[in-house]
Design a binder for these strands. Sequence first.
DNA 1: CAAAAACTGTTTCCCTTGGACACAGTGTAC
DNA 2: GTACACTGTGTCCAAGGGAAACAGTTTTTG
Lengths: 231, 231
Amino acid sequence: MAAEKTAITLLWGERTAPKRGPRPTLSVDTIAAAGIEIADADGLGAVTMHQVAKRLGVTKMALYRYVPGKVELVALMIDLALGQPPRLDAATGWRSKLDTWARQMFDRFQAHPWTLEATVGARAIGPNELGWMEAATAALTGTGLAGPEILDTAATLTGHVRMIAQQVAAAPAGAPEQAMSDTIGALLAGREDRFPTLATALAAPTGKDQAFDFGLRCILDGVELLIDRLN
Amino acid sequence: MAAEKTAITLLWGERTAPKRGPRPTLSVDTIAAAGIEIADADGLGAVTMHQVAKRLGVTKMALYRYVPGKVELVALMIDLALGQPPRLDAATGWRSKLDTWARQMFDRFQAHPWTLEATVGARAIGPNELGWMEAATAALTGTGLAGPEILDTAATLTGHVRMIAQQVAAAPAGAPEQAMSDTIGALLAGREDRFPTLATALAAPTGKDQAFDFGLRCILDGVELLIDRLN
DNA sequence: CAAAAACTGTTTCCCTTGGACACAGTGTAC
DNA sequence: GTACACTGTGTCCAAGGGAAACAGTTTTTG
């Protein structure tokens, strides 16, 4: 009863070793790590119970001794892949803190692109993920913003980080930012009359990789405006 | 060769009726519409070739006469569900236009929550989706912003809309914004020492449904700052 | 008008996945 | 030493995506 392995229990509960019976060959973390390796290499779709087990030199069904199902496994993978939140002590001022916070998160999403698709929809939240939220909240505490505003700011930043990470990840590797422009450009060819301003905007020379900085600056500017108004 | 049904062809090509053979019972749009109904009711996971066919009173394999595979079907569903972009002529000024644009997009995402998970990762872009981008681009043309900046602004707004829509969709229906706070609040119980500022922020009374407005205002404020600086 | 061609929907089959379940082996507690 | 808790395995099943061959239907061509 204490050991009913739900996603929450696995994420938040203490890892207690069994007292009787044979030594477990695996552990929850080992399994999650193996899943992450597969997802990093071949995408989330390649993460199969079979594949994970194969990588660990074990039968598929052995995994079910540690993890109740695939959903829980993915939840564990997410929290392990996100990793511990960054320490923002070095940065001075809320703006600088949030800036590095966003960049760090962006790096994580790029290191494990599959987390983007894995983190849509209702799911169990792990300690690391909550730790990231705590870090952002801490950065904004003392600015005069109210609780909900702080949370909303974090959400908006997360949205932006995710969006850009998604655009980069959608590019077929190699062409970081160019790819989306190219794809859309190809569609636009011969249809400039239907999408006139879009065609013009895309025709302009694009400084690479500026999308992330641009949006981040806009958001933080907006927050700064609000904070300044409060003090 | 002209009729090789790829996702792009199906989305962008003209629907040409076959000249010989029996009358088709279905059409691409009918199938996509059926898929949307299922996804709206029971989620994207419930969208099976079998289920879609069943709803249309047809065998599963009949669908493959119209659509090469499930990926293409989902792509069609997305573009049909997004629908035509809003006309922003009524709104005056770029800020007002973008405001309604974002709200309209938010409504679409809420009407078809599954589009959120369906639009992650590389995929074919349809005319409606591009039309939404065109609408946003048109709203910002003439503000003095350069092409890339216009596109980046649209991306940032989209990111925010998606993020909030996702938070709302993740809530188990009924409790719009409360749910996430509750879930996290439950996790936080007894762990306030580990997530101190987060606990404080969550303890504050939350005005309902303000997250969307808050972030939108921040982003637009940031863009406005930039535009004002240019003129 | 007859035959060929193009197109329809169906039936049957296969492969991959997630998961249930019973089994045999293994280590600890009494 | 024996009971018990626990491990990993082998077998089985249902659901899902898709391929291939088939029979029926309409139009075109001779």
